[in-house]
Design a protein around this nucleic acid. Structure first.
Length: 830
RNA sequence: GCCCUCGUAGCCCAAUGGCAGAGGCAGAGGACUUAAAAUCCUCCAAGUGUGGGUUCGACCCCCACCGAGGGCACCA
């Protein structure tokens, strides 16, 4: 079966294939979307789609994302803005490296070939990208600045190395940032993540935790609430106090963190994280030491997955040591347990079983005492087994007795601080960003390790530190960076003292690349600096960012962090990079994500071949609100084809000439046209593109009717309406719109036609229907002037015979009038 | 367990607290056709998950519950 026969656009419509081929070269020549020409006086807009990873050709998800981004970019061009809508590639990373290993090839050509394929597909998809600004993160001209940024952070103490137990993916053979561990699994390959003690590079994002939270007020209402909530959860600030406990037989006291300092008198034991250094030290030399070692081994064998089961029974070991409660001098048993985390707070807690469920579970498992110190009115936790965490009045708590929770917290915090035993403190769930990777295809870390000078930056004039070619390197993951095998490359003279030294062999997490790439587009051809401040001031921040919700935490949090660092450096003049954010949903099939194993893959190229580019773009945009998932089983690309043909057909019906005076045209069709312009614009600016399409469909229906059985094809209003359709359609179906525009007698490109000014007089309806209610129930409908006053409308309602009849014998309590819409008469029937 | 979002015709989805239906898909009928396709026209359907509350008036605001999806999760 030939593709000609399977296509559903061959009947009574335009030849989609021909039209697509016809306009691409024309647009290449006109370059309607070139931004930043020197004489351009239009106000600016920066519209950005998250750049893709170049693994294979574009898929349905890309099609949706770029269709949506294109509506926004093209709309603002029509509105007379100088729109920068750039595109590049997030080209470093594991997929390329894994593909290279599998095929025994170099990741570089594989990557560049895929980029070429995707770029060609984007052109055919009619994306309004400004190609003059494109770059790839694997270009040395780009990653050179990645290295520069790393060194900027290094100089400021924001990039540092430390020994730590890190997330390790045994399959990828590399470390992972916290953000890349999803439910205990590697986000890339779903392998259970293990822990490994390593010395690694970190970016100090925790130093910005408070500002990352506070600046969200700038994003409220402009970013999806969902994303803001996710970021808040991820940062996870909690408010409480640090309290110092003396340890018997130890010189140094131990500080614990608690969110409930008011319950200090309810502490009945003390717990340290079993895998912490403190636990090992405390166990040393006690009778429990042997058992502790055994217990610890058992814990280490358990993976993160096991730990995720929060309902598993509590385990622990009494270390035969005691802590002293600073407020009442009580001796508390010190236990080691894995329900306390070594890397949150201080890795040690006071246990208040009456008011913390985890502590209560532990106390009951180990037969430890439970003391209620907050009277909440609920059942005694000793009996119910349910800790009472709510508000209440303090009891059994010395000076706190009788106080409410908040008051008690303030009181005890002040007392602790006075006595030097503690003070109010916040804690965060957020950890520093681990950026080292033991893999090849990434930006080399520009540091030289010198035995005498320590960590020495690669001098600026030696940047970029080029990633050595892959030829001859064994890329197979083995737990250390493949670059380490390149002895010649690794061995260098220390830039400081000249003595033999070694290069750092790790590469950077590719999220470093994407956390600032949006700053590079305005001056991507300037190879003397990461970004040109003048261009940054012109274009940034990004006015509209479009991308998937999968990046709600990782990419967006890192970008916000790095922007703040650059702001503090004085390198940029803003602290939030993305003013507005749109998270499009996923394209799914039959309710679930497309995957080869499910066998529900829909190939973009097949869909484009069958229905044409415009129909696929239209289907994506019209399917529903952009943030909702699109179920391809629910959309009708052939319905889109039908509509586009219906619109196109109108352009051949118009018999008036270009430039005809619209004001002479049929008034009701003119009103429909201007209402469509007005409403579609509002819908697009509110990111409700599906509604905008519905408005265009209405106008198509109205124009069809007017031409066939109304004012006719020669009426100026008919031309105005069809031109309006072409202009509005150009933001979503550019081929169809361009073809219509030409058939209407215009020169290309319709993309630059401009969104006409709506005439306010044409937005006023001749008459409207006012509703008359009695006690909220609709009784009558009156046709009235849209400018009727409240008093007039009320009088008209009361004068209406149906209403007068219904009111007979009743007492009018109240009349609410909202001209010209509604009159509600409240009556009292006795 | 905690937090967030969403429940409107058979389906996808619209409705600044003011007529529940804008648009589409599917379906039915008709016109045109030798016929079909295409095209054009007409028609069809829910009372807004459930129960309360606020209000002159609730799809919309508040509370509880049910259902779906998502985020975080032994974070003291």
């Amino acid at each position: 079966m030939s593709s000609e026969q399977t296509r559903d656009h061959v009947h009574e419509g335009y030849d989609v294939t021909y039209v697509q081929e016809k306009w691409l070269p024309v647009w290449d020549k006109i370059e309607p979307f070139k931004s930043g020409r020197p004489d351009d006086a239009r106000p600016k807009k920066y519209v950005l789609d998250m750049f893709p990873y170049p693994s294979g050709d574009l898929h349905m998800g890309h099609a949706e994302a770029y269709a949506l981004g294109d509506v926004i970019a093209r709309y603002w061009v029509q509105r007379g803005f100088n729109v920068m809508h750039p595109m590049g590639w997030d080209a470093f990373g594991l997929p390329a490296e894994n593909a290279a290993i599998k095929r025994k090839i170099d990741p570089a050509p594989w990557t560049y070939e895929n980029i070429a394929v995707q770029k060609a597909s984007m052109r055919r998809f009619a994306c309004s990208f400004d190609w003059d600004r494109t770059f790839n993160t694997c270009d040395p001209e780009f990653y050179r600045w990645n290295q520069w940024i790393f060194l900027q952070l290094f100089e400021r103490g924001l990039a540092y190395r430390k020994d730590s137990k890190v997330n390790w993916c045994p399959s990828c053979q590399t470390v992972l940032a916290n953000e890349q561990v999803v439910a205990g699994l590697c986000e890339r390959c779903d392998t259970p993540v293990t822990k490994k003690k390593l010395n690694q590079w970190y970016f100090k994002i925790t130093e910005y935790a408070d500002r990352l939270l506070a600046d969200m007020s700038q994003l409220e209402g402009k970013w999806p609430d969902k994303v803001l909530t996710m970021q808040r959860n991820w940062i996870g600030r909690s408010t409480g106090a640090n309290v110092t406990f003396k340890i018997e037989g130890r010189a140094e006291p131990v500080t614990i963190y608690t969110t409930r300092p008011d319950t200090l008198y309810g502490a009945t034991f003390f717990v340290v994280a079993a895998d912490s250094d403190l636990a090992a030290e405390l166990a040393q030399g006690t009778g429990a030491e042997k058992d502790f070692v055994t217990y610890l081994e058992g814990i280490k064998a358990a993976s993160d997955i096991d730990r995720l089961a929060t309902d598993r029974p509590k385990t622990g070991l009494f270390l035969q040591r005691y802590a002293i409660n600073p407020v009442n001098g009580e001796k508390l048993q010190i236990w080691a347990s894995d329900y306390v985390l070594a890397d949150y707070g201080t890795g040690a807690i006071m246990a208040v079983p009456a008011h913390d469920q985890r502590d209560l579970d532990f106390a009951r498992a180990m037969a430890l005492p439970v003391r209620v110190v907050v009277e909440t009115g609920e059942e005694d936790p000793n009996i119910s087994g349910i800790a009472t965490a709510g508000n209440g009045t303090l009891i059994n708590s010395g000076p706190l007795n009788g106080k409410e929770k908040e008051e008690a917290i303030a009181f005890i915090n002040a007392q602790l601080e006075r006595e030097g035993l503690g003070k109010a403190a916040d804690n965060y769930r957020l950890r520093d960003w681990l950026i080292s990777r033991q893999r090849y295809w990434g930006t080399p870390i520009p540091i030289i390790h010198c035995p005498s000078c320590g960590e020495v930056p690669v001098p600026q004039d030696q940047l970029p530190l080029i990633l050595p070619p892959a030829q001859g390197i064994d890329l197979k993951p083995k737990g250390t960076s493949p670059l380490g095998a390149l002895t010649d490359w690794v061995s260098v003279a220390c830039p400081n003292c000249g003595e033999p030294a070694k290069r750092d062999t790790d590469t950077m997490d590719t999220f470093v690349d994407s956390s600032w790439y949006f700053l590079r587009f305005p001056s991507s051809t300037d190879h003397s600096q990461a970004f040109n401040r003048k261009d940054i001031d012109t274009w940034l921040p990004v006015d509209q960012y479009v991308g998937g919700v999968t990046h709600a935490i990782l990419h967006l949090l890192y970008s916000r962090f790095l922007t703040k660092v650059l702001f503090d450096m004085g390198a940029v003049g803003f602290s939030e990079p993305f003013t507005r954010l749109l998270n499009q949903g996923m394209v799914v099939m039959d309710g679930s994500a497309m995957s080869k194993s499910r066998g529900n893959m829909v190939r973009l190229s097949d869909e484009l071949e069958r229905h044409g580019v415009d129909a696929i773009r239209l289907s994506m945009v019209f399917a529903g609100p952009p943030e909702d998932d699109v179920d391809w089983a629910d959309v009708s690309p052939s319905g889109s084809v039908k509509f586009l043909n219906r619109a196109w057909r109108l352009s051949g019906d118009i018999t008036s000439v270009v430039g005809v005076e619209y004001s002479m045209g049929d008034i009701s069709l003119r009103k429909a046209t201007h209402k469509a312009f007005n409403d579609a614009a509002f819908a697009i600016e509110s990111l409700r593109f599906n509604v905008a399409i519905a408005r265009i469909m209405e106008l198509v229906n109205a124009a069809r009717k007017a031409i066939d059985s109304g004012c006719g094809p020669a009426d100026p209003a008919a031309r105005e309406a069809v031109e309006a359709i072409a202009i509005m359609l150009s933001v979503v179906a550019p081929f169809t719109a361009e073809e219509m525009w030409e058939r209407l007698g215009h020169q290309p490109s319709v993309a630059l036609a401009g969104w006409p000014k709506v005439e306010p007089a044409l937005l006023v309806a001749d008459s409207v229907i006012a509703v008359v209610q009695i006690n909220g129930k609709i009784k009558e409908r009156l046709e009235v002037s849209p400018t009727i006053s409240d008093a007039e409308l009320e009088a008209a309602a009361l004068a209406h015979e149906g209403i007068a009849g219904a009111l007979a014998g009743a007492t009018i309590v109240k009349i609410i009038t909202r001209a010209p819409k509604i009159v509600n008469i409240v009556i009292n029937n006795e």
